[in-house]
Nucleic acid binder design. Sequence first.
DNA 1: ACCTGTGAAAAAATTCACAGCC
DNA 2: GGCTGTGAATTTTTTCACAGGT
Lengths: 255, 255
Amino acid sequence: MATGRTHRPATRSRGIPEATVARLPLYLRALTALSERSVPTVSSEELAVAAGVNSAKLRKDFSYLGSYGTRGVGYDVEYLVYQISRELGLTQDWPVVIVGIGNLGAALANYGGFASRGFRVAALIDADPEMAGKPVAGMPVQHTDELERIISDNGVSIGVIATPAGGAQQVCERLVAAGVTSILNFAPTVLTVPDGVDVRKVDLSIELQILAFHEQRKAGEEAAAAAEAGAPPPVRATGATRKGPDGDVPAVMPA
Amino acid sequence: MATGRTHRPATRSRGIPEATVARLPLYLRALTALSERSVPTVSSEELAVAAGVNSAKLRKDFSYLGSYGTRGVGYDVEYLVYQISRELGLTQDWPVVIVGIGNLGAALANYGGFASRGFRVAALIDADPEMAGKPVAGMPVQHTDELERIISDNGVSIGVIATPAGGAQQVCERLVAAGVTSILNFAPTVLTVPDGVDVRKVDLSIELQILAFHEQRKAGEEAAAAAEAGAPPPVRATGATRKGPDGDVPAVMPA
DNA sequence: ACCTGTGAAAAAATTCACAGCC
DNA sequence: GGCTGTGAATTTTTTCACAGGT
């Protein structure tokens, strides 16, 4: 099982660029906030600031959806909220299951951002029999044995995996076999899925690593060549070989 | 306070493209797994599969770091682990603080992926006096009053914000004022920071919304023009105006 | 006077395809 | 024969800048 490629090839769905799709939730969030403050209209510049992008990009993004603004005025907040919601498919109700109710799974179950955007947590599933029946976020945790039945009874097409890395692929396969076609993966593993199944991943430590990269660079601007002792970019041993997993490979991370 | 731009302008640090930096943690994870299985060398193709990318991209990415492979053979796993770790700044120890110890904060505190990659959780901070002293992940939660002292005592330069959206900006400003220059934001808000401070965000619901978009598209392939009754892309009322937040704007989401 | 929508230009990222080395 | 490293080609994304509408 699970033969197909990993990840889909970033298809440009319905002509809306993937990069734009990825920003629509950002705009939606900013617009929802404006809507709650009963702001009737907003300019591309204002909305761009609120969403943390620049206005040219925002206007270009919106241009893929249609002409929803009014020149000289801006965008009608309510109307735009609706259009983006519709485009994202959030005007319908998506039942999701969360598999793996550890700290993270519980956090997700309690996370308001799901419920408020068309996602309904249909069930919480965990492999630990101890967890079964325990209420999390006002909902009893169910055992993995029930997985297939739950998926099918609730017409679930989106699954969230928050298990340890080890169990993720197996859970993924069961979800897919039961009919799930979109998976949000929080486990730090690459999932292999058949064609036609979407996987998106969130790795909590990846963003931190990217920050460390930039942080190091900031520090390096002062400390400069102190550590690297004047040698150009690659530290690689000057002429000597450096093959084996032993030898002169410098002491690696904590491990 | 907090005057500067939002987000940094995606600087191409030291000539390594941002897109490449974002994938280095992926490669590192795959390599670490190989290393644990004592695999000595790996080809770009094998590693690409393990990391979930294609091999041309991987080779191009590595080419920015230097020539760390051997033609006809592949890459030395240990050596590459070290090189990528070094490039990402993970050979040094980064003390981080986590602010906001709710479900998510606790999940982060317990998340092994931090500790195993050069990040050390120096403190857990929460605004709730009830939480103070409670142990989470084997560590007593400290009160927000201590924030500045903790940052300074531990030389913390990376902060993780896992508070509700409302408190995030204020926490952010205190972190920055205390000397933090990189922030990982889990709160669903755009943070405004001065120049020179990096912010990266993880929004748990954004990925889900992107999945919904694709999921809807899959469903739409069969259901097709059933809902949209043959009209081309924009549904906008044919000629009539559609201004006010009332009128013919179709009933909006759950809200 | 203001602001959108968008062609066109520029920049960035990805993919191709193959020379060069093991 | 196998695999890396990389210029060149291609595609995608971002940015510019302004025509056109309110």
